[in-house]
Design a protein around this nucleic acid. Structure first.
Lengths: 176, 176
DNA sequence: GGCTAATATTTTGAAGTTAAAGTAAATCCC
DNA sequence: GGGATTTACTTTAACTTCAAAATATTAGCC
């Protein structure tokens, strides 16, 4: 049986709307915050699965794509592991993980820093560069899985989430 | 060394804003969609880690909380595994996984359906109910980790993401 | 110079996710 | 009735995340 993608089964109604209803009837004053959270969770799940499907033909995951994309953006195609973790906003162990996998496929090499022997530099290879450019073209063609979203709508998402992130101290408040 | 939570290291600027800049300078027509995607990813990561921190004292993860919450909402406190997957919008294997863990802790029991022996029913125990009500109170007090977000701001998030989900066929277009 | 503290990375372990394959049971249909 | 298909759940495998502990190296300070 081919499971539907991403999991909706034969559900015709929207489980998020249903959850919002449940909450509204019990704790009306908390329903909107609950719904904001579940909206974010669902949107992430949805986008991730669609983007991973786009990347699958290239043989990389989204995490790997982001790492390669970051390296390709740098002048030398090279960055310390720790810096990558900061820029990608992920745990150091996640960087080790994804870089190890990419190294195994010859898309990245690892080398000790000449200046600080604690530091490991990840460097993108020509193969890695070629792959990330191809993958980027694919994502662009598909509008990052959001081709049906207009640019103003995309900006509404960005703005609303910027406000959200700012409210928890992850970003500056928008300065209109 | 206590790593900062959730991973920002000593970064003073916003990596998302930086990524948007990079994209704008190269592919201005795709920058907004890229930024919408990274915004969603980051917001999810941020919310999940904050909510899991709130739930940690209760000894459950967010996935487990959602499963318990769903069961507690039903009349009998009981639901087939498959239905849970639909409502939670996760893979059947994820339901098996989380229910097994909850069963091991005595928060849920598993039983075969009397009507269809393929079906497994998950039932929340009194301990499970007590725990989920406590956890819900904690989340409410903390405004689901969004207490600094006003209700109109929360609604802006909901609306923008509803539009996003609708654009990929996951929800109905808003009908104002 | 040498002890102490901080930093950078890796390892290990627990949790989550999905896809794909396997098992068992119900249903369809001739 | 009985074979084929569908459905429900579990298992396994791959991958992701994070936390905590282990290792190595650098930097600070008397």
């Amino acid at each position: 049986m081919a499971v539907k993608f991403p999991y909706r089964g034969g559900v015709s109604f929207d489980p998020l709307a249903e959850a919002h209803r449940q909450w509204s009837s019990r704790w009306p004053e908390h329903a909107d915050h609950m719904a904001a959270v579940t909206s974010v969770m669902r949107a992430q799940q949805l986008l991730l699965s669609r983007i991973e499907a786009l990347l699958k033909p290239h043989g990389i995951t989204f995490a790997a794509y982001e790492a390669l994309r970051l390296l390709a953006f740098t002048r030398e195609g090279r960055l310390p592991m720790g810096k990558m973790g900061e820029r990608l906003m992920v745990h150091p162990a996640s960087v080790t993980n994804v870089i190890s996998r990419l190294e195994g496929r010859g898309l990245v090499t690892r080398s000790p820093s000449p200046h600080d022997r604690r530091v490991v530099l990840a460097t993108i290879t020509p193969e890695g560069r070629a792959l990330v450019e191809d993958a980027t073209a694919t994502l662009h063609e598909a509008g990052f899985a959001l081709s049906e979203l207009s640019r103003p709508e995309a900006r509404a998402v960005i703005d609303a989430l910027q406000t959200l992130r700012a409210s928890v101290g992850d970003a500056e408040r928008a300065t209109p």
